[in-house]
Nucleic acid binder design. Structure first.
Lengths: 305, 305
DNA sequence: CTACTTTACGCCTGTCGTAAATATC
DNA sequence: GATATTTACGACAGGCGTAAAGTAG
């Protein structure tokens, strides 16, 4: 009964929060959007919006339908990209969104192993992005696979539930957080440290850490750390540490070997979990399965220095 | 560019293998279907069919698009069901497809534990079905979760790749195959047995065992067993064993305690893996996550007699 | 008054069916 | 010749825009 065509309009309305803005984005008149949504509500036999003169908000039924609309939008987008690539007569092709350290340590070697065998060659486009953006790319249909990390538990954090539950998750690897300090630091000659040891020092944190893991970790210990600054990637954070701006917590796999910093084991250990989300989409049959196998194989042999 | 509406027609064509039959199923004329598919091929900028006078077959591009069409169809169907249930103002509701023994030993206790707490009450519809049909129900949008089993490896068998790769998989439990013989059997007083011991006896097998696990197991040992008959569920198989029709291999959790049969441990052991597939759909946010947690909790305490 | 949604109505695009043509087994 | 797909063409439904009305801040 529900026509998929209308869901594209519905999705635009839901994301913009107003019929008028959605109409403008879709190059339609507000009238057309209103009629479409009225028809959709009839088909769904449920009210989808709370109307007001300052736009609309979704009802519970509307929020439920939005997830469906998002999924369908992503699938269509992915299908179009897949058809475009297939038209070029090239080898099977994938787009993978990954954060930097997994790209270097997992994805690149996995691709190398995969492409050694001519029959399993996979033409891969890589988008470097942090987990939040990687999942958004997956959701939007711009990527077929997303390599992500998260803290605390093997299962992805609740804040991802809406998006993450729509895709298959494959655990790959886990590493630990290290406390990185400059060589001149009081702790630099020790090999382990506790959170309390640096409670009063300025911390260098990451933008958009999934679930604000470090904040949660700190408050669980009753700490209110001073945040010296926030950076976008781990190597930059480590450079800031070397410059004496503050201390930082960096996952083992992202720590680079620099003479001007030391990486200390944290007790109790805080683990980081790395995994892959795969989209249900078009190229999954061969290429994404092959790549996933290669990633798993690589994950078992990655050096945990 | 690709209009989702046409994919419903495309899907019907792909499954029926002919424009004419699809037209009949959709209550359209072959002409309309032909025009729709011509428009779809223009939008996709790719040939989707190999035409012949005995129907059509899909090209590579067509097969790719079919997966997208199936996913979208399932999502729409699931959304409609979810909206219908939400309209009744009832508690969150799920439909779960399960095979019989998991229904009794896992699902029922998990639901009982879940519904004890009033705030986590979940209204559940159960469809009893073997793994193949359970996945089909998931794919079709008729179910939100599927409890399935498979053999050999923790990962689902390759024959499920097309369907299973589109959903998140959650391992739950594993048990072992037992060799079930009648009390009068030569082996009845032993506690363990090997495949070779029953190489020459008639076997009672299951319809649609995932991946024909037993056939693979037998041929790996160089055996060509005689299949006495095939049954649809394990209790019936065991009854046939008691009646002297043949011997059977039945998973521990499905073996019932009867005085006229004996269950022998198999060496080397053949394991059965039980897990759940969850759909990305509408009600996943709360209900399916809660049920999954309850299933996992139950799986750790299930008796492995 | 402003910004948004809704309704009424006419136009127009797009889709369907009928009918005839074409092609293959 | 039977069955299936394709094309041409006319009819109809549905969606869009214009315009005007209604409404809340």
């Amino acid at each position: 009964m529900i026509e998929a065509q209308r869901l594209a309009v519905f999705r635009e309305v839901a994301h913009r929060g107003s019929f008028a803005q959605a109409a403008q984005a879709l190059r339609l008149t507000p009238s057309a959007v209103s009629q479409q949504m009225a028809a959709l509500e009839r088909a769904a036999q449920a009210g989808l919006f709370e109307r007001s003169t300052r736009g609309v908000t979704l009802t519970a039924a509307g929020q439920a339908l939005l997830r469906t609309a998002d999924t369908i939008h992503g699938e269509l987008h992915r299908a179009e990209r897949a058809l475009a690539r297939l038209r070029e007569q090239g080898p099977p092709s994938l787009t993978v969104a990954t954060f930097a350290s997994a790209g270097m340590l997992l994805l690149a070697p996995a691709l190398a192993a995969l492409n050694d065998r001519e029959d399993r060659h996979v033409d891969t486009t890589v988008i470097e992005s942090e987990p939040q953006q990687a999942l958004a790319a997956l959701d939007d249909g711009s990527a077929d696979m997303a390599l992500v990390y998260h803290f605390h538990t093997e299962q992805p954090p609740p804040s991802w539930a809406d998006i993450a539950h729509r895709y298959a998750y494959h655990p790959l690897l886990r590493d630990e957080l290290r406390l990185v300090v400059p060589v001149g630091h009081a702790l630099a000659r020790r090999s382990t440290a506790r959170l309390d040891d640096v409670a009063d020092e300025p911390w260098i944190q990451m933008w958009d850490l999934p679930g604000n893991a470090l904040d949660a970790l700190a408050s669980a210990h009753g700490l209110r750390p001073k945040v010296a600054c926030r950076a976008g990637d781990f190597p930059f954070m480590q450079a800031l540490v070397a410059a004496g701006v503050g201390i930082a917590f960096i996952p083992t796999l992202a720590v680079v070997d620099r003479p001007d910093t030391r990486a200390l084991v944290l007790t109790p250990t805080a683990k980081r979990y790395i995994g892959a989300y795969t989209a249900p989409g078009v190229p999954s049959n061969h290429a994404s399965r092959a790549l996933l196998d290669a990633l798993k194989a690589r994950a078992t042999t990655v050096p945990m220095s």
